[in-house]
Computed example of a mutant assay.
Amino acid sequence: MRLGLNLGYWQRYADDATETVLAAERLGYDSVWTAEAYGSDAFTPLAWYGARTSRIKLGTSVAQLSARTPAATAMTAMTLDHLTGGRLLLGVGASGPQVVEGWYGQPFAAPLARTREYVEIMRRIWRREEPVTAPGPHHPLPLPGGLGKPLKLITHPLRPDIPVYLGAEGPKNVALAAEIAQGWLPLFAFPSKIEEMYGEALRERPPGFDVAAMVVVIVTDDLRAALDGVKLMLTLYIGGMGAKGRNFHADIIGRMGFAEAAERVQSLYLSGQKEAAFRAVPDELADGISLVGPPGRIRERLEPWHRSPVTNLLVMGPRDEDSLRTVRDLVLG
């Protein structure tokens, strides 16, 4: 089991976590990850932290496909990988229709086919075997009927095989990750249910495939407050991070066995009853996808994670050096 730190994306205010990242590197954390939604982007903070560190790997969890063309993402990844000495882990994901259509103004269509095409184009760019052409239909290169011609990346990549991870929640998307990527980034993972939910999708994963699960970790004697913190996050994702008819976060909670609760949370949230939606999130769900409570309790609850297909825990929550050390000792000790 490897250990990473997931910083997520900025909330209301800018969040320079340099001291946290430096502490994580000193303590032997394998990686640090940033994210994006419709606020801070994923790449700029990694460049900032990469300039101040020397060893820790730098991951995007995730960079949204609709935010950039495949060529733009490939260029950014190549540049950052060079500047940081080959430390980039490129996590990408299709996001959902609310963000893709509402924020980027792009159609949300055929996410599986679009993801496959996107990753293949990036790999062709990095390999520099020939000028890049792609038949589409989502990202045709060159643009049909235009004046463009196939081009080859000017700069030779430091690594022509930059590791690609997919942020995926549905079984078909997870199977795609196992087929075309080096890793999978599950946002919500219930360790005792991963095999049941995704065993078939992961069956053909290659050796070394990294299942890097994001998990909220709160070391505290106040279990109630910790669970409420996880429930607050779940309320937003189940209730507000998707449209009524298409919310992948609510869908995955349903597949975990909480379909009725997910439907109730979303209905309450979308009707403006956010406090009632929060109360409708089951404690069992919040506890199952997180590691919260006193150290002894967390140590016991780590056992299902170690028995699961997860190979990498990307912890969310700890920020000071003492907390990072405690989490490290619990997970790796």
Rank of each mutant, 00 (worst) to 15 (best):
M1R: 10
D16V: 14
V21W: 02
V21R: 00
A23M: 09
A23C: 07
Y29E: 09
S31M: 09
A35M: 12
P45C: 13
L46Q: 04
I56M: 04
G59I: 10
S61W: 10
A63C: 14
A71Y: 08
M75I: 10
T76M: 15
D81Y: 11
R87M: 07
G93H: 04
G93T: 06
P97S: 14
G105M: 11
V132K: 09
L141K: 01
P144Q: 06
L147C: 02
G148N: 10
T155Y: 10
V164M: 08
L166C: 11
G167Q: 07
P171C: 11
L185C: 06
F190Q: 09
K193I: 00
L202K: 01
P207A: 05
A213R: 01
V215C: 15
D222Q: 12
R224C: 02
L227P: 06
G229V: 06
L236D: 10
Y237A: 09
K244Y: 14
A250E: 03
I252W: 02
I252E: 12
I253K: 01
S271N: 14
G272M: 10
F278I: 00
P282L: 07
E300I: 03
E303C: 02
E303L: 15
W305C: 07
V315D: 01
M316S: 13
E321T: 04
D322A: 14
L324V: 08
R328C: 04
R328L: 13
L330T: 09
